[in-house]
Write a protein that binds this DNA or RNA. Structure first.
Length: 470
RNA sequence: GCCGCUAUCGUCCAGGGGUCUAGGACGCCGGAUUCUCAGUCCGGAAACCGGGGUUCGAAUCCCCGUAGCGGUACCA
């Protein structure tokens, strides 16, 4: 069925578009639609057009447009044409509108909403409204919809979806003032821009027959359609701001990597066919086909994203990992940060989790009364004294040398390893959680390590935490 | 109301008439790694929405129901 359309289209090139309406930040659902379009374009060496659907409703703002572009850039999804503004195309829309008015495919109708209601009350509510040209040529512009037959959407994902024409109103395609409405503008733009494949959210499936009707009235071949299911929050409802990190900027601030987000989001509604889940962007491009997208809506699950993000973080080269952490923290890369990053890499799943692990290298130990009371009791003081003694004799202060002198201490003191290591940890970090204790000491360095252990011993002596025993 | 879409473990993705005692991943539970946390490894629990058909045989095909979602705007 598409042969004609493909032939008439220059060089059979795939042309897709991402057409967000700038009514807020780009959220994860929009990001997925953008990704799918991008993957389809890159897969077929086609073109991706970015079109801003701003057919004004005072909700579209320049700031929102900026946010969307920011989000796309951060996700590293580039486009080949645009951003194009839909309002800027008003002259083309008007031209198309006049064409339909002249041919009689559309007409001006002064009917009000109540008139439409009344019509349906009389003719049955499975019957679309049919109006007539107003005498004075005033009113909104409506498209004439045939009473007979069906309009069929041939969808790559849903197959053929059939809509009875009589169920549609002669719908409004332009306001009384001549400004055009969404379903008209989209159809005209997609045709003018030579879009060959429309990949968009499921919520547009019911709009598609209207766009098809417009295209037909204008004498244009329709593009192919792929309506991908919507994303939902954990409560099963359509995703919105209420669902935690729903927007791309929130995901960025939460410390997720663009590559991980791309991988995770691609898998919401689509699978490669085998059981692979870790697919880098190249594999995504190679394997993604819109027709393989599933039909049912998916739930965004941050836990799985977090796991996947950890996998991506651990795979980064130390230099890249450090640079990424530095950018996230707003710090400069130096050898100390690099070392701190090295010992934290296998323990963090998001960029936001890195700082709590390495904070002690850059700041004084944290105040954590609970940790202190829990750990610094009984033999802690004695253990620290022994550790301090061993450490102070070291010339070279590395993970290996530290380990060599500290590791034998538990046995020598007849203590469980934890009874020695945890007091060290609380001394140098203030908390009970840190990277491995030997590398933590090594990164902190000898002077500061001894200083902190001394301080801890002094504090214990001054006010020993009382405890029974154990 | 009307016109559509959807329905496999808690979540994501497989399986599309027999090979399904339904597979993989996240999460969860248990064990290992005798320094915390994390990571890693091993093991486990966990699903075909309900009812009718069709068929020798249905998670898979059809119908009905139910639930969720979308559209029904001079919104996008």
């Amino acid at each position: 069925m598409e042969t004609g359309a493909e032939m008439s289209n220059s060089e059979n090139e795939l042309r897709v578009r991402f057409a967000p309406s700038p009514t807020g930040a780009l959220h994860i659902g929009g990001a997925r639609t953008a990704l799918y379009n991008w993957l389809a374009a890159r897969h077929s060496f086609g073109k991706l057009v970015l079109r801003i659907e701003d057919t004004d409703l005072d909700r579209s703002t320049a700031e929102n447009v900026g946010q969307i572009i920011d989000a796309l850039e951060w996700l590293e999804l580039d486009w080949d044409e645009g951003p194009l503004s839909q309002v800027a195309r008003a002259p083309e829309h008007t031209k198309a509108l006049e064409k339909l008015l002249e041919s009689g495919a559309a007409y001006r109708d002064a009917a009000t909403a109540d008139d439409v209601k009344a019509y349906k009350a009389e003719h049955g509510n499975d019957r679309g409204y049919r109006g007539e040209q107003s005498a004075d040529g005033s009113g909104a512009v409506r498209l004439r919809v045939p009473d007979d037959g069906d309009t069929v959407v041939k969808d790559l994902i849903h197959g053929e979806v059939r809509f009875p024409n009589r169920s549609f109103d002669d719908f409004v395609i332009a306001r009384g003032d001549g400004s055009v409405l969404y379903n008209f503008a989209v159809a005209v733009d997609d045709a003018d821009m030579g879009i060959t494949e429309v990949i968009r959210g499921d919520d547009h499936l019911s709009n598609t027959p209207k766009q098809l009707l417009v295209l037909e009235a204008l004498g244009h071949e329709p593009p192919r359609y792929a309506h991908v299911p919507l994303l939902h929050g954990p409560d099963g409802k359509k995703l919105s701001k209420r669902h935690g990190a729903a927007s791309v900027q929130e995901l960025r601030d939460a410390g997720y990597l663009p590559a991980a987000i791309r991988n995770y989001v691609a898998l919401l509604g689509w699978g490669p066919g085998d059981d692979e889940t870790l697919l880098d962007t190249n594999e995504l491009v190679n394997r993604f086909r819109p027709e393989d997208v599933g039909k049912s809506s998916a739930v965004f699950d941050e836990k799985k994203l977090r796991w996947m993000n950890g996998r991506y973080m651990r795979e980064l080269d130390l230099e890249i990992y450090t640079a990424t952490v530095a950018r996230f923290l707003g710090r400069d890369v130096d050898s100390e940060l690099t070392e701190a990053c090295r010992i934290s890499q296998e323990k963090a799943s998001t960029l936001a989790e890195v700082w709590p692990l390495i904070r002690f290298v850059f700041e004084e130990p944290a105040e954590d009364e609970k940790a202190w009371r829990k750990i610094m009791k009984n033999d802690a003081g004695a253990a620290l004294a022994e550790v301090r003694e061993a450490l102070s004799g070291l010339d070279e202060f590395t993970t290996e040398t530290v380990e060599a002198v500290v590791e034998p201490i538990p046995e020598r003191l007849d203590l469980k390893p934890g009874k020695v290591y945890q007091p060290i940890r609380v001394s140098i970090t203030g908390t009970t959680v840190s990277p491995g204790i030997f590398e933590s000491l090594a990164v902190l360095g000898k002077p500061r390590s001894l200083e902190r252990i001394d301080a801890a011993m002094a504090r214990i002596e001054a006010a020993p935490p009382q405890t029974p025993d154990s």
